[in-house]
Design a binder for these strands. Structure first.
Length: 581
RNA sequence: CGGGGUGUAGCGCAGUUUGGUAGCGCGUUUGGUUCGGGACCAAAAGGUCGGGUGUUCAAAUCACCUCACCCCGACCA
């Protein structure tokens, strides 16, 4: 490809309204162009990057026995009505009617389509297990797209669906896929991606993992242990606290006028939030009933854990629908008798001598010891958000850290949620009808490309790993009006092409600075600079975009040397290379 | 859906407070001089000021309505 023909504007001004480095660089480098909110066109460099990512995905999926298929983007709503998701999924699912007035949807994930394809096809236990996957467009009507390709409404995704005849078989395959995912991320150049346990959300099922690239701009909060391998999404991480041993004291009501918040209470009584027990109020969406959570005063409620425990969507108690029998600002577990479900968080286990509301305006109790002062045995539930310094649920040390990450892939053990509701059955060895068990496995390709850019860049542009770089070699011909430079550069270009190297050749008559800046923005790993100076010495300057190498190389052996260099760099990203890590 | 912000040339922005000829930088085109980190000189092209309604002798500027985009939150595979 000659640069003079490459469509795309590269510029040095940071576009307005951009916060994230990968978004800025991909706009400045002529990679993407916004078409609408969360909808982008891709220029050639991006298309070449995503094609390479897709090739790696196909390779790894095929190696674990996957077979590539293709589902439609547009699906009749009937399929989603079968699974129940036409109703249960919110407005992220784009619904519309066709000319006959039939309900249609744009696929945002393809469990239903996968079951549709496989049911009545795999009818015998002998047909199992199998995995089908596709690489295709998804549309999700995000409430809020952001960050360039990081979070969009329309995107290309690799989604895979496996079908099994036993939970054990699913778990074994799930592990194979888990390992394949690690290889995929290593091969696209971000081996630091790690898996965390996650909430399964609308997908259903029990076990789920997300693959996370740690980065400040990530949308997810991750919980990791400094001392062991424990890693989890904040959404599902248990919160285990160590309570200081405090001497028991008599339960006593004290006057605390106008102290409705924990901060005011601590100020008045000269205590810390840890020494209090606060009440947090939610409403269940199912029946609009009130839920009161008693939790140690310094902690917050993890709404996802609460939602999963209550098996209902929840919303924070709205200030304007207060119940008359609740003393807002002074709620406490002792003598609380309003109509509500009561939950004690695990953070209160073994606590002594706390301050808590007295259910009487302007009064609190001091000396509250839950297990002594609550008459009936307490069933402690884990609904708190964990925090830096909490106790690791695996190794038991106070070594929990929270960091941010981008979710670059996810895997779910779905169970029979879809096969059951959509009536997919097979005959087992005894001729009995059984319901297959499913797993599903997704990777968003545009997001992955943007994530690599986020993780592999400098101030001047992306530094694409050669495994996914849009081109392998970038020739900068300085002073291409010089006949010797033009002749040399053209010869190197065509020789490299003949040797199967992917080359971008900057043949434009522009200044050196301009050319180098564009090259930095395109992030091609190997750069060959040819100028009157180098030609006169019979060499070309060869450098790596990551600045780890820079050397003059003889022109007469240049193209062979470059071919070898490309092969050597590529080999580090092969399946075999990452298997041995 | 809630809060905030922005819409003016391809891109980045000024002009709006106080209504009065549509501006700047970059980019683009042409000519010339330069030439290893976004060169210089000269000339030129390029605008329904997001859209609509209204106020006014006069609207980018004021009022009302509307649309789009961005940021924070809620939500989210």
């Amino acid at each position: 490809m000659k640069m003079s023909q490459l469509l795309g504007l590269r510029f040095k001004e940071t576009p307005a309204d951009c916060q994230i480095a990968s978004q800025i660089l991909m706009l400045r480098g002529g990679y993407i162009k916004g078409v609408g909110n969360g909808i982008y066109s891709l220029f050639t460099p991006t298309k070449r990057i995503t094609q390479k990512i897709e090739a790696i995905l196909r390779d790894e999926m095929d190696r674990i026995g996957g077979q590539e298929v293709m589902f439609p983007v547009t699906l009749p709503a009937d399929l989603w009505k079968e699974s129940g998701r036409f109703e249960s999924v919110g407005s992220e699912l784009l619904r519309f009617k066709d000319r006959s007035g039939n309900d249609m949807i744009l696929g945002m994930t393809h469990e239903e389509a996968a079951v549709h394809l496989a049911r009545n096809t795999a009818q015998s236990y002998a047909d199992y297990p199998f995995m089908i996957y596709q690489i295709q467009t998804k549309f999700r009507d995000e409430p809020r797209a952001r960050g360039g390709l990081i979070r969009v409404r329309e995107f290309t995704m690799k989604d895979a669906y496996s079908f099994h005849t036993s939970q054990e078989d699913l778990e074994n395959y799930y592990k194979e896929c888990y390992d394949a995912y690690h290889r995929i991320f290593a091969r696209v150049g971000i081996p630091e991606v790690f898996a965390v346990k996650s909430d399964s959300g609308m997908m259903g099922g029990k076990v789920a993992h997300e693959f996370m690239l740690p980065t400040e701009i990530g949308e997810d909060t991750l919980v990791i242990c400094d001392e062991c391998d424990y890693r989890s999404n904040m959404e599902v991480a248990p919160c285990i606290v160590e309570n200081e041993v405090a001497p028991d004291a008599e339960l006593e009501m004290v006057s605390t006028p106008d102290t409705k918040t924990i901060d005011e209470l601590c100020e008045l009584l000269k205590i810390t939030p840890k020494q209090t027990c606060k009440a947090v109020l939610y409403r269940k969406e199912i029946d609009d009933s009130l839920v009161v959570i008693f939790i140690r005063g310094d902690l917050e409620v993890n709404e996802i854990k609460l939602r999963n425990y209550l098996k209902s969507e929840i919303r924070p108690e709205n200030a304007d629908e207060h119940e008359s029998d609740i003393t807002y600002g002074f709620i406490g577990p002792v003598g609380f008798n309003a109509k509500a479900s009561i939950i004690f968080d695990r953070s209160l286990i073994g606590t002594h001598n706390l301050v808590t509301g007295a259910n009487k305006t302007d009064f609190h109790y001091i000396g509250f010891t839950p297990e002594r002062d609550i008459p009936s045995p307490i069933d402690f539930i884990d609904v708190a958000k964990t925090y830096d310094g909490a106790i690791c649920p695996i190794c038991g040390k106070k070594s929990i850290k929270t960091i941010r990450g981008i979710e670059v892939g996810n895997i779910f053990q779905l169970g029979t949620k879809y096969t059951d509701t959509m009536n997919m059955r097979y005959s087992d060895k005894n001729g009995e009808m059984q319901t297959p068990i499913m797993g599903c496995y997704g990777i968003g390709i545009g997001r992955l490309a943007a994530s690599v850019c986020e993780a592999r860049r400098d101030d001047y542009g992306p530094i694409w790993p050669i495994s996914i770089a849009p081109w392998q070699v970038h020739i900068c011909a300085l002073r291409s009006d010089n006949p010797l430079v033009a002749e040399t550069a053209n010869r190197v270009y065509s020789e490299l092409l003949a040797k199967g190297v992917e080359v971008l050749f900057d043949d434009r008559p522009v200044s050196a600075g301009f050319m180098f800046s564009d090259a930095d923005l395109l992030g091609v790993p190997i750069r060959i600079t040819i100028s009157p100076k180098t030609c006169s010495r019979g060499v070309a300057e060869v450098s790596l975009r990551d600045k780890s190498f820079k050397q003059d190389m003889q022109l007469d052996t240049l193209t062979d040397d470059i071919r070898n260099m490309v092969d050597e760099l590529l080999s580090k990203f092969s399946h075999e290379a990452v298997m041995t890590r």
